[in-house]
Design a protein around this nucleic acid. Structure first.
Lengths: 144, 144
DNA sequence: CCTATTTAGATTGTGCACAATTTAATCTTG
DNA sequence: CAAGATTAAATTGTGCACAATCTAAATAGG
């Protein structure tokens, strides 16, 4: 097996492992906010960009309606968001933050720094990791 | 400050995204073998190291019995593995490959090269990615 | 011994991820 | 305008991930 083959083989498992580890580090922090990691991602988009369709959320987070529909129903049950069909196009469901959903942003402010210190990795390493991964993801998206 | 809550500035989201992308690249290849990615990981360990307990498998793949028990039942239903209580310690379940399970290794030989070319990333990038991720995982494991 | 503790794995329950299909609304084109 | 195509979201079904709990077996310590 060539070095490249071996490497590809040996890099996919660490990526999968790291992703789970990172989410496991988020879990206790997000539990205090009564959010899961994917729910937190949805909230991030809404806090930053405001009202979204299910499909724009899906495009930004790489999730389909099969994942988002039940997730958004759970966020709505917690009174963090509202789901409303648009009058101008009844196929589209508009997702907006409730007052409670907007408020939750305050409680989330401390998460990034807590994660950074809990991962216990240097800022330089994280920056480098982000750079390479963003490169690879850009490459992958090009193929679509 | 609140910049940290922006999706674009997060490292964790790209890690999570990349992990899903990589597994999505495996999916069509593994479908031909009638395996999922976690099932493939179990088979890799068995092909490489032979007979395993549920708990040694779990330690190597970072999965608990709640995930492994049903997964191993599915592999057993496909006649790729056998699950047997050990006579010397009835708490322990020994996982061994069936003849069919051993045979499947041949069909899996082509997967790494297909993944390597499908990911379309340079060897240098992969090497650097692996180096940083391994570093971080080592760091994380130290804390346990 | 024999009881208390520990260990291995199974079970239960929640939630995510994704493929495949369905439903309803909108758009397109003849 | 009507029929067919397209689109957005929901639904259905499978499988993974993980917390919490349970069961049975093994071990330890009195």
């Amino acid at each position: 097996m060539s070095d490249k083959l071996k490497l590809a083989n040996q890099v996919c498992f660490p990526i999968y492992t790291l992703s789970k580890e990172v989410i496991n580090h988020y879990r206790p922090l997000l539990k205090e906010l009564d959010l899961t990691y994917p729910q937190y991602l949805v909230m991030l988009v809404l806090w930053e960009e405001g009202e979204q369709n299910v499909s724009t959320l899906g495009a930004k987070l790489n999730l389909d309606s099969g994942t988002l529909t039940p997730l958004l129903k759970r966020l709505a049950n917690k009174n963090l968001i509202e789901r409303n069909r648009k009058a101008t196009d009844e196929r589209v469901v508009s997702i907006t933050l409730t007052a409670q959903g907007k408020l939750k942003k305050k409680a989330a402010q401390s998460i990034p720094s807590k994660i950074a210190s809990s991962l216990n990795v240097s800022t330089a390493d994280l920056a480098q990791l982000k750079k390479i991964i963003d490169q690879i993801i850009t490459q992958i998206n090009k193929e679509k």
